[in-house]
Amino acid sequence: MRNYWTIVTRELKSYFSSPIAYVVIGLFLAISGVFFYLLITSFVQLCMRADVQAQMYRMAPPKLNINMMAIRPLFHNMSMFALFFMPLITMRLYADEKRSGTIELLLTSPVTNLQHILGKFSAAAILYLFMLLFTFVYMLLLFIFGNPELGPIMTGYLGLFLLGLCYIAFGIFFSTLTDNQLIAAISTMVFILFFYVVGWLSGLVGPFLGQFVEKLSVIEYFNDFSKGIFDTQNVIFYLSFIFMGLFLSFISIESARWRGR
């Protein structure tokens, strides 16, 4: 346990002593901020137009739901941005250790593979959580100037967090495969992008295969979260996805020892 925390703190310090964490967090927040602004302004315009229409026809003004019309698309956008930004956070975790030779220190120290894999995973997860916390500022603004529902926001964040952990788990796996950070990042992006968009094919491949393909898509399980539905089925899918990524990392590190690379 002590070893685990030692690894977590070292990785976190290392993130913040290089520009990468600041750049990734900054860009993620900037892009999410822009989308937040666009979604909210179009929502406000829509509300104003609806009000005008209601007055013209002498009807009661319609109630437009901000959770559904602004916050939910924002969560979907952020899940996409995280797909491109998280691999940049995870790419160095093992690839850099391999390139600089520090992997020899790590693998000849009395630290088990499980300890350092989970340590690195947790460090990246903490960084990601930190990044998400900043976006909560946007939600606070909505609470100050409007009255969104808290429930769907909480489940949305939970879904976003679990989805990010999936990205991290496979980011770590691809990082163990190479000593080149760029290759690690790009293969992670491509791999996860595949699982992100594969659901879009479901309408094209027939009813049987379509159902199967839909179940493969990581974003399919995110829809419920963003709507405010907490379903253990979705949580279990994400947990097994994460487990798979970490398990493959474990196997990859062990097999690299035997192959001698």
Binding site: R10, S17, E104, L105, L106, T108
Partner: peptide
Amino acid sequence: RKRIGYMPENPPLYHEM
């Protein structure tokens, strides 16, 4: 591992620390 100190050919240094 507890009883061994190892210096590989390239010192295993975390350069940012």
